[in-house]
């Protein structure tokens, strides 16, 4: 499962929460591919995925969070997708 966190470089809110979210994601799902994507450096890619606000989280190509979720919310979203797959 691929999780992409789009962030604004220099955003204090993002930097503080990214590590917690990553840890929650890796704990919830074994085969997680975690990417932190700068919306400035990959603007076209962000637009292509429908990212309009920052931070945003895309899971397997689908825009799921348009603001920073709590680690619990992210974990629940990932587990829901795991159940959907099986």
């Amino acid at each position: 499962m691929k999780v992409e966190l789009f962030y604004s470089p220099g955003c204090p809110e993002c930097a503080a929460a990214q590590e917690r979210l990553r840890a929650a994601a890796e704990e919830a799902v074994r085969d997680i591919e975690w990417r932190e994507v700068s919306a400035v450096e990959q603007l076209d890619y962000a637009v292509q995925l429908g990212v309009l606000t920052l931070p945003s989280i895309v899971i397997d190509g689908e825009l799921v969070f348009t603001s920073m979720p709590s680690p619990e919310q992210l974990r629940d979203a990932l587990l829901e997708r795991c159940v959907g797959r099986s």
Binding site: S8, P9, G10, C11, P12, A39, V40, L43, A46, V47, V51, L52, T53, L54
Partner: peptide, 14 residues
């Protein structure tokens, strides 16, 4: 901080 304003500018660009 400047990052707060920059974030809004990047969102507008998106």
């Amino acid at each position: 901080c400047c990052g707060d304003v920059r974030k809004r500018a990047i969102e507008k660009k998106l």
